[in-house]
């Protein structure tokens, strides 16, 4: 191999191969993601509204103080927590059951699996609009079902805080259960068959087989599913905004909706930046946990 000299040699030095390879990616991310993030981080320490001509005013932690002392952020965090717990919980249970169903080989399995995976491929907006239609008291399937078979009255699911939460949770869980199913399925098919055969010889009960053989193989994947879905569900916005608009009252106003309102309707730009950073902090914690579990899992396998 011919050796070049000068700049090119410096550039091609094997020591710099790693940095050079990742440099383009880092530059793009810096430009489009990191710098905006830093900018809005800076903004969160100023007093600033995007719809006035007043210049930003440095104010230390004023925005954070303002945001954290108001009730609405705690309320919305609580609402978000309920939705996350409900939806992720439901996804785990349903996803697990679906995975058990699809873990074995049977005719037409691949095609039937496609039908179950379909909701995940829909856009959030589409899911929100059609679930709104399903829940609608006059035209909605749910109301018509209740009306014709149970009470004879139109059924208005979204009219109470609890009903609205259930409505949101159900729609979100429906859309994302296939995701959990995929993960659990991966765990189930990785269980070596000979373990089951051995268990058969030992005449183990199915529950014991489940806890001693099946569960250990899917445990870490379940944890990953919980974390991944939690990260995604914390950000929930489209679905809630279209389905309930945060109502009734503020019963379903999640942190995502609150950040949107603060930034684009109230123009409390620095407050929204501060809220964004609180949200970012949560995402960072969850993402680190997620990667930690992945590492654990990989080292276990080796």
């Amino acid at each position: 191999m011919k050796r070049s000299s000068g700049f090119l040699a410096w550039f091609m030095d094997p020591k710099r191969r790693g940095p050079m390879l990742i440099a383009p990616a880092i530059i793009v991310l810096l430009l489009v993601n990191i710098i905006p993030l830093m900018w809005s981080f800076g903004l969160s320490f100023f007093k600033y509204r995007a719809n006035t001509l007043k210049l930003p005013n440095f104010s230390w932690f004023y925005s954070y103080e303002k945001v954290l002392t108001k009730d609405n952020i705690w309320e919305s965090l609580q609402t978000t927590a309920i939705i996350v717990a409900g939806s992720v919980g439901m996804q785990m249970i349903l996803g697990f059951l679906l995975a058990l169903l699809f873990a074995s080989q049977f005719p037409l399995r691949k095609i039937l699996l496609m039908f179950v995976l379909a909701p995940m491929m829909l856009s959030n907006v589409a899911v929100a609009i059609y679930f709104k239609l399903f829940y609608e008291p006059e035209f909605g399937l749910l109301s018509q079902f209740v009306q014709s078979f149970i009470t004879g009255e139109m059924y208005v699911l979204l009219s109470t805080p609890a009903g609205a939460l259930i409505g949101v949770i159900f729609a979100d869980a429906w859309q994302w259960t296939p995701f959990v199913m995929l993960l659990v399925l991966a765990g189930l098919v990785s269980v070596p068959k000979h373990l089951y055969e051995a268990a058969e010889i030992d005449r183990m009960s199915w529950w014991r087989k489940f806890t001693t053989i099946t569960f250990p193989y899917v445990r870490s994947l379940l944890l990953l599913a919980v974390l991944f879905r939690t990260i995604e569900t914390v950000k929930i916005f489209d679905l809630v905004f279209i389905l309930t608009n945060g109502g009734p009252g503020t019963a379903t106003e999640t942190i995502g909706v609150l950040v949107y309102r603060t930034a684009f309707q109230f123009f409390r730009t620095s407050n929204s930046a501060a809220m964004g950073y609180i949200l970012l902090f949560a995402v960072i914690v969850l993402t680190s946990l997620y990667l930690y579990v992945i590492k654990q899992r990989e080292s276990e396998e080796i």
């Binding site: 993601n33 710098i35 905006p36 950040v259 949107y260 930034a263 930046a273 964004g276 995402v283």
Partner: peptide, 14 residues
């Protein structure tokens, strides 16, 4: 990975 997990609404203004 974090930049991907971010809620996009945070960066939209900058």
């Amino acid at each position: 990975l974090t930049t991907r997990m971010l809620p996009p609404i945070i960066v939209i203004v900058p």
